[in-house]
Design a protein around this nucleic acid. Structure first.
Length: 813
DNA sequence: TTTGGTGTGGTCTGGA
DNA sequence: TCCAGACCACACC
């Protein structure tokens, strides 16, 4: 029998001491399918040169007592740059791999062992060349129907990847729970589910409201049971949560445990379990993919988000344009205790589930795309960091290319790597202070990735023995060079990524941005971009299997080389250099048509650039401002604002874009920038700032505009210096709020005595009368405004009006 | 278990 | 009380 399934998840079980891979998916008829496939895992032993046979015989003898070992044979693979003879030890029981290896690894003929810690199900995917979120074809027999929540269960004899990857209709349900504290005990009061056609709230109450999506439950136990029943009936493929790993499922599990009931969402002998995935433990459900959107947003998406906090509310606002229903936790608790406005709580809870579902419509396709690219299951992908994604991608490629996968560094090795001194990075040109009109901006398209490809930068191509390569491909300012005769492993595979991305981008140009096809390509393009851009940093990452600092160092050195050349050339061509950072230059020239001139310049540069390195003309801006550093007169790097022809501001580095400044100060600064760059009227800005200060003094400012957000980056006890955010976090913790590493704390500086830190209070416990006017005037609003206005010669006195009114204006003309 | 280096600026801390 | 340097967070690329 042959069946095609869209592969969603992979796991394994051990049956009679043999590993069996379990594949979960969906077929074209929308049936949920489980496929079982026997599979043997293995690892490699690298004998010292010349002692291969000797070791082989020794191992053969040693393994006689291990019935799990089924095969011992020689294979040839590249270990680093060298082709070597390895001994492959295959076995039935994946759990035994550790102790079998332990018995071998210390034999005197053994140089090293490899690939002993590749998880069983990943080993299977890699060896079969199967990537999740695509269609696979299986051959085998149907062994069960309607078993354990699956419509069809197969035992497969053959499995193949197909090229198709259109997505079938998947059943996705989002989950959200609400809890309140009653008599010092956490009570589960609502479980909300949302999906394409319906929404449901299980509520712990006698329901009298009108909302028909609410179902009353008389106890927490009944709620959980109804939830479990519903999932069993609906048989979703995917359950999405927003922080389900650390919150919803964690709490549900604890609650279920204390009530002595099961969270068997699929079948009765498979309880929800927590598995370790990196630092956290992840909630895993047999037969349903649990995607925790928060995990993915935090590690992968957050650098691209503008929001200060990664709350569901803020993230949803940014990505889908809808925020949460207004209801503070405290208010909800109070309402619940008093049994008032329950429908409001239900509405709120349901809405959370709805937002989570809506978010998943955007984010799941991205996760799927990455999944296809790096070949890992979505469950893992959504919990991975950049380095893990890169590594997953490389592991696949290594096996395809016949390389042994290097081992992960042991903690000792990591310590050594960490102790190495940092290497030189990019060039940042000191900007010319002041306001400039007509600025042309050019930058290198993906500078570091294109350097890696063009110069064949890879761990094994470093410092080859060819004299010729030393001359033809040596790294500026270093003693390194890279081989030009043989393509490097990383450079080669990065090249395919870049080519793929360029191809996708071209195709996208021909499509309607709203079309489904465009979105598919856009997601794939995004996936390739993530991996490409992370490759450089990965070289110097202490936890990397393919760690090679010299490669990162060389990439940066070439970067400096190319940007310097362009700066030099621009200067020679009569351009004035305003600024430049790593891969970009901001230039100016008094000509009729700067656009044309800059474009010509970039074309000229490109003629002389090797390989796929390319300078791109970004555009001409009407004007831009570069300010001085706080200390000293020199221009500040990484802080500027540009305004384009449409009057759109592009702001970098300024307080406006930082979360550790209050909204009020940031808004003031944005307005000041607008007055200066758009209206070209700094006097208006001064007037505006004065008004804001008056509002502050009159306490007419909303408290939320005064909140400063900062992250807690280590355990509170480890801080040597107790800054405002740490003090505020301590105060929050005293009031029962959980503060962990990574928490972002919002605080307000209140009036009173003591240092700023002493007066920093968690925002939730402050009222409008408490804020410290002086602090917000002198340490927030004025510095933010002045940062810009100083560039025009204004001083603090011009804002506060300490000097005679109008004097500042008089002198500034 | 957190891809890298470069850079700015606020607040605290401890010695003069 | 003042100030330099350390610590810390966050931005840029």
């Amino acid at each position: 029998m042959v069946e095609k399934i869209f592969l969603l998840d992979v796991d394994y079980e051990v049956e009679k001491d043999s590993g069996v891979v379990l594949l979960f998916g969906k077929n074209k008829d929308g049936k949920k399918i489980l496929v079982k496939k026997e599979f043997q895992t293995y690892f490699f032993v690298l004998p010292f040169k010349g002692r291969e046979e000797e070791l082989y015989k020794k191992i053969e003898k040693l393994m006689e007592k291990h019935t799990t070992v089924t095969n011992i044979d020689f294979v040839e693979k590249k270990v680093g740059k060298e082709k070597r003879k390895l001994i492959k030890i295959s076995m039935k029981d994946p759990r035994r791999i550790k102790d079998v290896r332990d018995e071998i690894k210390n034999l005197e003929e053994v140089e090293n062992t490899f690939e002993y810690n590749i998880p069983f199900y990943k080993r299977f995917l890699i060896d079969y060349g199967i990537k999740p979120c695509q269609w696979i074809e299986i051959e085998g027999e149907l062994v069960d129907e309607n078993k354990d929540g699956f419509d069809l269960v197969f035992k497969a004899t053959k499995i193949n990847q197909t090229e198709e990857y259109f997505e079938p209709e998947l059943k996705i349900i989002s989950l959200d729970t609400e809890w309140v504290e009653v008599d010092e005990r956490e009570k589960l009061i609502m479980i909300s589910l949302s999906t394409k056609n319906w929404r449901k709230v299980f509520a712990l109450t006698q329901w009298e409201g009108k909302q028909d999506f609410v179902e009353s439950c008389s106890s927490e136990e009944k709620m959980i049971k109804r939830f479990v029943e519903t999932i069993k009936e609906e048989k979703p493929d995917i359950l999405v949560t927003y922080n389900g790993d650390l919150f919803d499922f964690l709490k549900l599990k604890q609650k279920a445990k204390s009530l002595r009931i099961k969270l068997d969402l699929v079948s009765k002998d498979k309880d929800l379990e927590f598995v370790r995935r990196g630092k956290e433990s992840a909630a895993r459900i047999f037969g349903i993919v649990h995607i925790d959107l928060y995990q993915f947003i935090e590690s992968i998406l957050s650098p691209n988000l503008k929001t200060e906090v990664l709350s569901l509310d803020e993230v949803a606002k940014e990505l889908i344009g809808e925020g949460k229903k207004d209801l503070e936790y405290q208010e909800m608790s109070d309402l619940w205790r008093e049994r008032k406005e329950l429908s409001r709580i239900a509405e709120y809870s349901m809405w959370d589930a709805y937002l989570t579902y809506e978010l998943s419509k955007i984010i799941l396709p991205q996760i799927f795309s990455i999944s296809r690219l790096v070949g890992e299951i979505p469950f893992d992908v959504c919990r991975y960091s950049y380095s893990q994604l890169v590594e997953a991608f490389l592991i696949r490629k290594a096996v395809e290319d016949g390389l042994v996968i290097p081992n992960s560094p042991k903690s000792e090795e990591k310590e050594t790597r960490m102790r190495e001194l940092p290497y030189r990075g990019a060039i940042v040109v000191e900007p010319k202070k002041g306001i400039h009109e007509n600025i042309a901006v050019l930058d290198f398209r993906s500078l570091y990735p294109t350097i890696i490809v063009t110069h064949n930068i890879s761990p094994e191509t470093l410092n080859c023995t060819h004299e010729e390569c030393k001359i033809r491909n040596s790294v500026p300012e270093t003693r390194y060079h890279f081989c030009t005769k043989e393509e490097g492993f990383i450079s080669k595979n990065l090249k395919t990524l870049i080519e793929r991305r360029r191809f996708l981008k071209e195709r996208m140009k021909l499509l309607d941005k709203k079309s489904v096809e465009y979105k598919i390509l856009d997601n794939e393009q995004y996936a390739t971009k993530i991996i490409s851009n992370a490759m450089y940093g990965y070289f110097a990452f202490v936890g990397a299997r393919w760690y090679k600092r010299e490669c990162a160092e060389s990439t940066a050195a070439f970067g400096r080389h190319y940007i310097s050349k362009v700066l030099e050339f621009a200067h020679k061509e009569g351009f004035e250099i305003i600024y430049g950072d790593t891969d970009s230059i901001f230039i100016r020239k008094k000509v009729e048509n700067l656009e044309e001139e800059a474009l010509r310049f970039s074309e000229l540069v490109n003629e002389s650039l090797p390989g796929i390195i390319e300078l791109e003309f970004r555009g001409v801006y009407n004007s831009g401002i570069f300010v001085a550093r706080e200390k000293g007169e020199v221009g500040a790097k990484k802080r500027y604002a540009l305004i384009d022809k449409e009057g759109k501001l592009e702001i970098r580095g300024f307080e406006v874009v930082r979360r550790d400044w209050c909204k009020l100060a940031k808004e003031v600064q944005r307005k000041v920038l607008e007055f200066v760059l758009k209206d070209k009227d700094p006097e208006k800005a001064i007037g505006y700032v004065r008004e804001v200060i008056k509002d502050l003094k009159d306490r007419r400012v909303r408290l939320e505009d005064l909140i400063i957000y900062e992250q807690i980056t280590k355990p509170l006890s480890k801080y040597e210096q107790i800054g405002p955010h740490v003090k505020a976090a301590m105060k929050a913790r005293e009031r029962g709020i959980i503060i962990t590493v990574g928490s972002i704390i919002g605080f307000v500086i209140t009036k009173g005595v003591g240092s700023i830190s002493d007066r920093a209070m968690p925002a939730d416990f402050v009222s409008r009368d408490d804020y410290d006017v002086d602090y917000y005037v002198n340490n927030q609003v004025i510095p933010a405004a002045l940062r810009v206005l100083k560039a025009l010669g204004y001083t603090e006195d011009d804002i506060t009006g300490k000097k005679v009114e109008g004097l500042g204006k008089f002198f500034k003309g």
